[in-house]
Nucleic acid binder design. Structure first.
Lengths: 201, 201
DNA sequence: ATAATTTCTTAACCTAGGTTAAGTGCTCTA
DNA sequence: TAGAGCACTTAACCTAGGTTAAGAAATTAT
């Protein structure tokens, strides 16, 4: 595996991601990178478990992660997928410093940029522009959660599935369909039934 | 109606709200207030309609507003309530500058602090600390939307109602129950049935 | 390759919550 | 103070999606 390429890829990618919303000088870029750590994880690795306090935020350079919770009936619910160029974490636990409800798991071997809460806060002090970046990130995420919330209330599972397909076409091939079912808000059995119904058309 | 008291109340309130997360000098406070406008609205006033571009964000000093959308079947879905000390708006439309899907309506006569997008952006330039404030606001809002999303997938309408009651005890007395039904994600008829069932216990 | 484990499918049956409709209050407004 | 809307309730009936269970297919590990 061409490690150097990967590392290079990562670094570009997270800086590019930031550059979408704020302009950092090259010193600031270097400072930012010095406060991050990049790691490889194999599939099935659990980066965070429910009950733990989330001390890090993750940026995915390659591979796929998911966040999910497990309710009293031992049923998993996928909150989020994150593949190349996406951020993921347990925002509740991260900002409140209380034990969270989310698990974060690697679904497909991944290279992940890790920022600890400590470093994150130092970065806010040293590069105030990052407040703006993470504000915009949170606002965009909020908008997509609002949309998903309304979709769960006002459209059918079939329509949600179609939306998912057009929004995240690559994910369908890459993650087990039971997780997509969960993200959409139906059981794997119903998802399977629904898929068969759609194929007949 | 003691207009001066009201105005004074508003101003305190929004500055107090900001003071929860960032410290402004009194010059900055004055600058902030100079970029806002406070207005009274009667119940049933529509501040924003679906299809329009949201050019303002609202902070509620008194009264109650709600945001909702209307789907193809002419059914309303409440996204949000906002009473004293809450912010409300159509974040999607506001940040994308595209026509939104939300209506914002006054449910109970209200005094509202209005910030236009233009002024908001000037404020970001003149008081960069506000980036931090609105970052934190967006992050908190994100967390509560994530929780609501998971609740809609993993707990029953009855449990959601109980959560609503303990989270927003004052709203139950003040808002027509059909809107609470909608917020929770059930029809008014089912809500009524559920309430009767709960009273028997 | 082969066993072991996941994942996916199918099908019969079940239920939370939706729909329709009719009736009973409210509460504004005239 | 009437009466025109709203807001709420009740009840019969309906359906999207859940549950259970068992087998088939695909992965993964040995």
């Amino acid at each position: 595996m061409p490690k150097l390429n990967c590392i290079f890829g990562v670094m570009q990618s997270i800086l590019e991601n930031i550059a979408k919303h704020v302009v950092l000088t090259s010193e600031e870029q270097a400072l930012f990178l010095s406060k991050t750590e990049t790691k490889q994880f194999k599939a099935k690795t659990i980066l965070l478990s429910a009950g733990e306090i989330a001390t890090c935020t993750y940026f995915v350079n390659s591979g796929i992660l998911r966040s999910f919770n497990i309710n009293d009936n031992i049923i998993e619910h996928v909150l989020h997928f994150a593949c190349e160029g996406w951020w993921i974490g347990d925002m509740y636990s991260y900002i409140s410093r209380k034990p969270g409800n989310l698990f974060i798991e690697v679904l497909e071997e991944a290279e992940v940029v890790i920022i600890t809460k400590e470093n994150h806060q130092k970065l806010y002090q040293e590069i105030p522009k990052l407040e703006r970046f993470f504000r915009i990130l949170a606002e965009n995420s909020l908008v997509s959660h609002q949309e998903r919330l309304m979709d769960n209330l006002s459209i059918t599972a079939e329509e949600r599935f179609e939306k998912f397909c057009s929004k995240y076409p690559t994910l369908i091939q890459r993650v087990p369909q039971k997780h997509i079912a969960s993200f959409i808000g139906v059981t794997p059995e119903f998802f399977s039934k629904m898929k068969a119904r759609l194929l007949k058309k």
